[in-house]
Amino acid sequence: MNTQVTVSFAGQPCQLSFARYGNGRIALRLFTHEGPMATATVNVPCHPLGPNQVLIKDFAENRGVLEALVEAGVVRRTGALCRVGHAEAHVCDLLIEPGDLH
């Protein structure tokens, strides 16, 4: 059973979708009724993560997505960061059950 979650991002109500990257890590994507809005996560295979942790990309076109996900009760900040090029992603605990992922 997939959990239906609405996240308000960039002034748009978005549905949260779960997927997996090729290495099995969880990807969080946001969709409006018009289509894809943002991929909230980034995959950095060499950075260690716990089983229910994700790396949130809160820079460039995704600025504000971390706060939106925290406010929606989707993730919790851990305070840890991961270098992604010239920016940093936030290591977060996933607070909701992603449902069936393939």
Rank of each mutant, 00 (worst) to 15 (best):
C14A: 11
D93Q: 10
G99W: 08
F9C: 07
C14W: 08
T32H: 08
G79N: 08
L49R: 05
A89I: 07
E88G: 01
C92K: 01
R77T: 08
F18S: 06
L16M: 08
G24T: 13
R77W: 01
Q15G: 11
P48M: 07
N23R: 05
L28D: 04
T41Y: 01
Y21V: 09
S17E: 08
V74C: 03
P13M: 09
A38D: 03
N62S: 04
A10P: 00
A60I: 03
A87I: 00
M1C: 02
E71S: 08
T6R: 06
S8E: 11
L66V: 04
H47D: 09
V74L: 02
Q12T: 12
M37V: 05
L30E: 03
L55Y: 05
L66H: 10
V65L: 05
R29A: 15
Q4G: 05
G64A: 01
I96Y: 02
G11Y: 06
H90A: 14
I26Y: 06
V75H: 03
L28R: 11
I26P: 02
F18A: 09
T39L: 12
M37K: 15
V42M: 06
A38T: 07
C82K: 07
G50N: 12
R76H: 06
Q4M: 14
Y21F: 15
R29L: 14
P98F: 10
V75E: 01
R20G: 00
R83D: 13
G79Y: 10
C46P: 09
A72H: 08
V44R: 10
R29V: 05
L55F: 11
G99M: 04
V91E: 10
L95G: 01
Q4E: 15
T32E: 14
L30T: 04
M37S: 14
H102S: 13
V42S: 09
Q53Y: 00
D100L: 13
A89Q: 03
T32L: 07
L94D: 04
A72T: 08
Q12K: 15
C14F: 06
P51A: 15
I26W: 01
Q15E: 13
A19S: 15
G99H: 10
L66C: 10
V5I: 15
V70K: 07
T39S: 08
G64C: 04
S17W: 06
V7C: 00
P51Q: 13
R20Q: 15
Q12D: 06
V54A: 03
G85V: 12
V5E: 00
N62I: 03
T6H: 03
V54Y: 04
F9P: 06
E71N: 13
N43C: 10
L49A: 08
M1A: 10
A10T: 02
M37A: 14
H102D: 11
G35M: 14
K57I: 00
V65E: 05
